[in-house]
Amino acid sequence: MTMFFQVAIDGLLTGMVYALVASGLSLIWGVMDVLNFAHGEFLMLGMYVSYWLGFLINFDPLISWIASGVFCFLLGILTYKLIIHHCLLGPPLSALLATFGLSMILKNFALNRFSPNYRLLTGTLLDGKRTLIGNIVLPMPQLITSIFALVVVFIIYYVIKRTRLGWAIQATAMDKEAAELMGINTERIFLLVFGLGGLCVGVAGGLLPSYLAVHPEVGGLFGLIAFVCVAMGGFGSIPGALLAALLIGLVEALGGFYIAPVFKYVVVFGLYLLVVMLKPKGLFGW
């Protein structure tokens, strides 16, 4: 039984990180209907920012997540200004193609500048620390990251639901033309949403190097899982993405342990198919 809880807790902790990555994607996707293929690469760059701050001037990831967040916020804004903005005029898939190109640029930029070395921050504040609840081990880096993830997701959710800005975002998501008629500058909203999406993934990236090695290919699987989380939760629904991410983390761990580790992603993707078969708009979709 301890084993079961241990595996489940590990899964939930992983799920929290997925949630943070996915909530950024969910925002972008829900509001603008743009599949951002470079999302995993945003995460990778966020991790590099945090890594270099830690490596060069000894900033702990607990501090440098701010820098990563800001960096990815700016990266998001830049991406929107330079690329997405132009693609929105065309057919819906052109943004996908453009972000795919962007992901190639970013990935190989990292390869070019930082070499393909696997980089790991050592001696961080949380490095190797653990707490015990009964017999269940809770690794501190993952725990703190999860708490952060939860807080950030809740802040984003609060902003969307309770502030004027959030209402404007919601209005834009529901009907762009009508929102414009109401005097909302949808262009600004789009810009901001892309920035916020970057911010979420940047914060996640900032915290991860305390236990995950950074290399140019690190973002790939995270990006993929984030897609599934968002679709499973229902587009544009942040609680949906959170729930889906936790579910995916849980199923991944339990499926990996009780079926076979090699099947863990089969179980994850199978779960997605199952959910959308039952609820074609995802868990919380409208």
Binding site: L88, A98, G101
Partner: peptide, 18 residues
């Protein structure tokens, strides 16, 4: 690959219809 990605982006930004 960087250049390849860049050219894809360029075409899409210039003419999203391909």
């Amino acid at each position: 690959l960087m250049l390849f990605g860049f050219l894809i982006v360029l075409i899409m930004v210039r003419q999203p219809k391909g």
